[in-house]
Simulated scan of single mutants.
Amino acid sequence: MSLSSHVEELKKRHATLSEQVEEMQRAPGSSDAEIAELKKQKLRLKEEISRLEAAE
């Protein structure tokens, strides 16, 4: 897998997590801990994307 396709895959996963966070925030009874974990995953992906794009 090339670096650019790997970055694109990470961006897709980041977008999916964003959608999940938004859905959970709108849903009553969603766990704050689950939302926080998804946000942490998003941040890790964003940092990885930034790191890889800087290496290109």
Rank of each mutant, 00 (worst) to 15 (best):
S4K: 00
E48S: 03
H6S: 12
L45V: 03
K11R: 14
I49M: 12
V21F: 07
Q41L: 08
K39H: 02
A15Y: 09
E37S: 10
S31R: 03
S4G: 00
E22K: 10
G29P: 07
S18K: 08
S5F: 05
E34V: 00
K40P: 08
R13L: 15
L3E: 12
K12G: 01
G29H: 11
K40T: 15
K42H: 04
S2A: 02
M24F: 12
K42G: 06
K46A: 15
A27E: 15
A33T: 12
H6C: 11
Q41R: 09
L10Y: 05
S5M: 07
K11A: 14
L38D: 02
L3I: 12
E22Y: 06
L38H: 03
L43S: 11
L38K: 04
S4R: 01
A27W: 07
P28D: 10
H6D: 14
E37H: 09
E22H: 09
I49H: 10
A55T: 04
S50G: 08
L38C: 02
I49K: 05
L38Q: 04
R13Y: 08
S50F: 08
S2H: 01
L52P: 03
Q20A: 08
L3Y: 05
E48I: 01
A15H: 08
A33E: 13
S50M: 11
E23T: 03
L17F: 07
A54Q: 11
V21A: 05
K42V: 03
E48W: 00
E8T: 04
L38S: 02
L43M: 12
H6E: 13
S50I: 12
G29Q: 12
E19K: 10
S30I: 13
A36L: 04
V21N: 09
Q25F: 08
E47R: 01
L10M: 10
E56D: 12
H6F: 11
G29K: 09
K39G: 03
Q41M: 09
L38W: 02
S30D: 13
K46Y: 13
A54E: 13
M1N: 13
A15I: 07
A33S: 12
D32N: 01
K40I: 14
S31F: 01
E8M: 04
A15D: 15
E23C: 03
K12C: 00
T16Y: 03
L52M: 06
K46H: 13
